[in-house]
Amino acid sequence: MNLQELNLIDLLSEKHLFLRQKVTELSPGQINKTESHILAVLEAHKMLSISEISRIINISRQGTHKSIQGLLSRGYIEGVDVANNQRDKHLVLTPKGIECNRKMLIVKRQLEQQIADKLGPERVELIKALLKEDWLES
C-alpha cells in the first residue's frame, strides 16, 4: 500500500491497525487485536457493560460479545453485579487480565521506543501531544 496517497483518517487507521497487530503478535498468550483492545479499555475504565465497550471500541455488539465470551472463558475478565441494576452485568479485569495488560504495556513501550528511534523522541512527543488534544467533535 502506498501511504503517500492516503488521507489523514486512512493514515491513522493504517498505523493503528499495524500497531494493534504488532502488540498482539509480540504479547504472550492467545489474545487477538480486538481482545487486546477490550482489555486496554477495561483497564482504563475499570468496569464497563458490553454495550459501553462496544461503543468505545466501535465494533458491533455481536462482535464485542463474541470477543468478551472468549475473554471470560479464558479467565481474563469476569462479570460483576452492579448495584441498582438487575439487568446488566459489568465486566472487570481478573488478576490474569491485569497481568496480561502489564505484559502488553511492556510491548507497547518497546514499540514506542522503536518508533522514537526512527522518528526521534521529540517528534514522538509531538504526535502524542497532538493526539491528546480535543480536536474531534462527538
Rank of each mutant, 00 (worst) to 15 (best):
N2R: 12
N2C: 09
L3T: 13
Q4P: 00
L11G: 02
L12A: 14
S13W: 09
S13Y: 12
H16E: 13
L17Q: 09
F18H: 12
F18L: 15
Q21I: 06
P28E: 13
G29Y: 04
I31K: 00
I31P: 00
I31N: 02
T34F: 07
S36V: 01
H37L: 14
H37Q: 15
I38R: 03
L39K: 00
V41D: 01
L42R: 03
L42N: 02
E43N: 10
E43F: 10
A44H: 05
H45Y: 07
K46V: 12
M47G: 01
M47I: 06
L48R: 07
S49N: 05
I50D: 09
I50E: 13
I53E: 02
I53W: 02
R55E: 15
I57Q: 01
N58P: 00
N58K: 13
N58D: 11
I59R: 08
I59W: 04
R61S: 09
R61V: 08
T64I: 04
H65P: 00
K66R: 10
S67D: 01
G70E: 07
L71E: 00
R74Q: 13
Y76D: 00
I77Q: 03
I77T: 03
V80H: 06
V80T: 05
V80W: 01
D81T: 14
V82R: 14
R87W: 09
D88C: 02
K89Y: 00
K89T: 05
H90P: 03
L91Q: 11
L91M: 15
L93H: 01
P95S: 10
I98T: 12
N101M: 08
R102T: 10
R102K: 14
K108G: 03
R109P: 04
Q110P: 04
Q114M: 07
I115E: 00
P121F: 07
R123C: 06
K128V: 14
L130Q: 10
L131D: 06
L131R: 05
L136Q: 14
L136P: 05
L136H: 11
E137V: 08
E137S: 11
S138M: 12
